[in-house]
Amino acid sequence: MPNMDMLRDQFMQNAVLATLFAGISCALIGVLVVTMRLSFIGVCMSHSAFAGALLGLVIGWNPLATAMLFSLAAAGALGPIADRGEFDPDTAMGVVFSSSLGLSFLLLALVPGPKTEALSLLWGSILTVTRTNLLLMAGVALGILVLLKLFYKEIEAVMFSRELALACGVPATAVFYGLLVASGLAITTSLSAIGGLLVFSLVINPAAAAYQIARNLKNMFLLAVTFGILSGWVGLALSCILNLPTGALIIVVSSIIFITATVFSPKKKKLQASIVEAGKTENG
C-alpha cells in the first residue's frame, strides 16, 4: 500500500507534475477540439506524433523533436484540407490517420533492438518522465494559458463559428491555425508521459465532461482543467495502489468522469424538456 512518503521520491514528484501539466494543456486543447467538433483532427495529430517519435528512434534523433515535427506537419496539412473543401474533410483526415498508423507500424518494425522504448511511447511511461520533458510540458501548458488569456474573445468567436468570426473582422484563419499548432504541441509533449494511444482520451474526456455541465465558456475551460488534473492525479494514485499501468488508469478515471457528467447533465434534462415542450406545441 503506497503512502505519502512516496511523494518524496523524485520520480513520483515528476509524475505528479507531469499529470498536472498534461491535464492542463490537454484539457484546454480539448475544449477547443470538442466545441469546434475537431475530434478527428486530434486523433490524426496524436498518431502523426507517434509516427514521428518512432522515426526519431529509427534514425537516432530525439523522438520528441521528430514527434513535434510530424505533429506540426499534420496540423499544417489538416488545416488547409479542412479549409479548401476540395475533399470531404473526414475523408482527408481518414487518409492522414490511416497513413500515420501504417507508417507507425512500419517504423515499429524498423526500430533496432528491443522495442521497449517504442512501446512506451504507445502506452506512455509517466514514472520515467525526464526533467527536460517536464519543463517542456510546463512551458506548453503555460503558453496555452497565456494565449487563451490574450486572445480569449477571438478564440470564443472562432469556436462559435469561423465564418461569423471572419465576418466580424476577427482574424479567424490565423486563430484557427494557431489552435491547431497549440494542439500539436500539447499532444506531442504529453506523448511520452501519457502515450500516443491514450493521450487523445485526456484531450477529449475532460472537455466532453465539462461540455455537459458548463453554461459559459470560461466555466467550461475551468471544469475541463479540473477534470483533467483530477483524472491524472486519481489515475496516478490508483496506479500506485493497484500496481496497474498509469496511463490506462488515467483514461479510465477520465471516462468515469465523462459518463457521470453525461448522466447527470443539467443541459440534457433541459434539452429533453424543451423537445417535449416543442412536441406538445406542434401537436396542440
Partner: peptide, 27 residues
C-alpha cells in the same frame, strides 16, 4: 455586418445569446 442564413450550433454549446451579440464588437 453580415447576418448569415443560419448558424448550426449544438444546443449544449456554452455560449450565451449575449456572448453572440457581443461578438459583433470584437473586430
Amino acid at each position: 455586418a453580415y447576418v448569415p442564413q443560419n448558424i448550426k450550433v449544438d444546443p449544449r454549446m456554452p455560449i450565451t445569446a449575449f456572448d453572440v451579440v457581443m461578438m459583433g464588437r470584437f473586430g
